[in-house]
Amino acid sequence: MTDILNALTLLANFLIIPGLTYGSQLALGALGVTLVYGVLRFSNFAQGETMAFGAMITILVTWGLQSIGVSIKPLPTALIAIPIGITVTAILTLAIDKVVYRYHRERRANPVIFLIVSIGVMFFMGGLIRFIIGPGDQIFFDGTRFILKAQEFKEMTGLNEGLSLKMTQAVTIAIALIIVTAMFWFLNHTRTGKSMRAYSDNEDLALLSGIDPDRVVMVTWIIVAALATVGGTLYGLDKSFKPFVYMQLLLPIFASAIVGGVGNPVGAIAGGYVIAFSELILTFAYKKVLLYLGPDNLELDSLIQFLGTDYKIAVSFIILVIVLVIKPTGLFSGKTI
């Protein structure tokens, strides 16, 4: 019995909690991709950099707040800096839309052109970020590190294995939940949200209904900025902030969006968790779990791991390929938001 509990604790500690955390971060990113795809109809390669930019602004504000002694311990100070991060990021995305995307939109350019344009934007933002904050690692987490320490858990339960819950993990999951709920409420119950769905569903008919496309586009960018800033900041709090890493997030984020069905918000969220859990499940070393569950004399000389931890990045790609081969429209057959 204790063996089973120990095994479960192991799984919870190394698979479930990290999976939920990482999945939430991916889901926020994928939601941004899906919104842009649904409303503006292109794949936004600048999503990773938008997340990095939002996180960077939040970090700068956090440092400012920390230096004047503001703190909301046990929560990280960054949480109160996020609104400013969102505002600045929204201003940037809107400015970029006005200067860059709008021209191509008015000419109804091919989606591939938009894609290339978004890559240009990605470089611009990447350079800007590195210019402002540098390419290095930035630490901005403060507050209490653990909500539940492994040691405490062991003492509490008397199990061999510890279960720990980091503040950043709890915060990530909670905030993602709030944001996602708020977003669905917005899309399904407000006039503006519905007009976004209508525009995404049928652009011409939306125009015929008097929906102002400029407004829809503007709202979309603001929401994308908000999602990106929150996602980017949570990722930075949980792991660490490094501009380079956000570019690497692009693949899992797109994989999440496509797995779920591009353009479908429910799909984006599901996709985020699918990718996150697949990564962890395939790179998790099952040796200890099996030792607990197997017969007492079981001996294992390998880690029992499907893929080396280094190959995490390949997982999202493999899943992407499987989805493209089997069901290119994704699990939730998306197209509209």
Binding site: R191, K194, R197, A198, D201, L205, S209
Partner: peptide, 19 residues
């Protein structure tokens, strides 16, 4: 394509009254 296929009937009407 004269309706919003992904939206409910009532939402379609609401969108009609958007202005």
């Amino acid at each position: 394509q004269n309706v919003f296929t992904s939206m409910t009937v009532e939402e379609n009407l609401e969108m009609g009254a958007f202005i």
